[in-house]
Computed example of a mutant assay.
Amino acid sequence: MIRRSSRGGTAALWSGLSLCAVTLTGLVASTSPEPATQEVAAPENVSAATMTNEPYCPPGTEPVSEAERRVADPDAGPSDSAEVTPEQAAEYQDRLRRAMDRVRDHEAAAPYTVPVVMHVISASDGSGEISDARIDDQVDVLNRAYRGEYAQGSEGTDTEFRFELADVTRTENDTWFRDFGEQRDEIRAELRQGGPETLNIYTADLGSGLLGFSTFPQDYADDPDQDGVAIAHDTLPGGDREKFNEGHTGTHEVGHWLGLFHTFQNGCESPGDYVDDTPYEREAASGCPEGRDTCPEREGEDPVTNFMNYSDDACMTHFTKGQADRMAEHWAAFREGAPQA
């Protein structure tokens, strides 16, 4: 049985942006580096929290236990646990570079106001229901995170992205709720609203160990109906997911939706996550291992408190200026002014 309802938000859906004064003029993507030689077996276009091989531990460090997974998942099944390969990451980077060549002289201004549509999928017994208050709290977490309000001292930056709730849909469907991974193509094709600038977030039971997954901006043009973010319903603020119930699964997955890789992309091998000011990291962090350094020959300790890692929610505090620039590039290249579905 399917029951649906929709809550009108405080903002209407739109294809434009709320624009202020700071422009992206002169922001140019770097040329695509050579793919790293590190071999990582992976299903196509999937990025997960931990590597499946034994973790590398520099002298004096302990192995890190496997984290619950937040993945970037354009095509493969969300139950898969593997990394985006260096070759796949390089292809995404090359597509960004080519797209930025086309929009280099286009002035896109910040802040970027993103309309958000929340799709709450629940079961007939009430599992998965999320109150309007918790939805508002999730949007608030996104705004605080992307403004840099969780950052400590000077570690973070205001990315200039803002989020405004546009609509909430509610669907009661036992199959969709409990088997979202198998049904997701149908679900997203039926429920998705807006164009490339609209952030569609789906909540459901994603299964044990999986916190969320997202598409990349580069994939919108080929499959607009599937664009969006899925997060486990119990990861929203006030949920029951121990260590992961402060809303930062949403923060993390929206980072993928805006073009960011994990901080541990490519491990210790160049070009890492394609962001100059995030230190190299061999593998995902679990818990909050402050002072960890899995790439001792590279400058800086592991970015365990970065939102694009897999640390506990309470440990995650910031994006960097380089990540903010990269998200702005992806917005200009693939979301602002992209064709409507």
Results as ranks from 00 to 15, higher is better:
2 I>K: 13
4 R>C: 11
15 S>P: 00
21 A>P: 03
27 L>A: 11
30 S>I: 07
33 P>S: 12
36 A>L: 05
37 T>H: 09
38 Q>H: 08
47 S>K: 05
55 P>A: 05
59 P>C: 10
78 P>W: 15
88 Q>E: 14
101 D>T: 07
101 D>W: 12
102 R>C: 07
103 V>I: 04
105 D>Y: 05
110 A>H: 02
124 S>T: 14
125 D>A: 09
141 V>N: 03
142 L>A: 00
147 R>F: 01
153 G>N: 14
154 S>L: 13
162 R>V: 00
164 E>V: 12
176 W>P: 05
185 D>L: 10
188 R>N: 03
188 R>D: 03
200 N>W: 01
201 I>Y: 00
208 S>E: 15
211 L>M: 14
216 F>P: 01
221 A>S: 11
221 A>W: 00
222 D>I: 01
222 D>P: 01
232 A>V: 07
233 H>K: 08
235 T>M: 07
239 G>Y: 03
245 N>D: 15
246 E>F: 04
251 T>F: 02
254 V>K: 01
257 W>G: 01
262 H>K: 10
268 C>T: 10
268 C>S: 09
268 C>N: 12
269 E>D: 15
272 G>E: 03
276 D>A: 14
278 T>S: 07
288 C>A: 15
298 R>Q: 13
305 T>P: 09
318 H>L: 05
323 Q>K: 06
335 R>P: 00
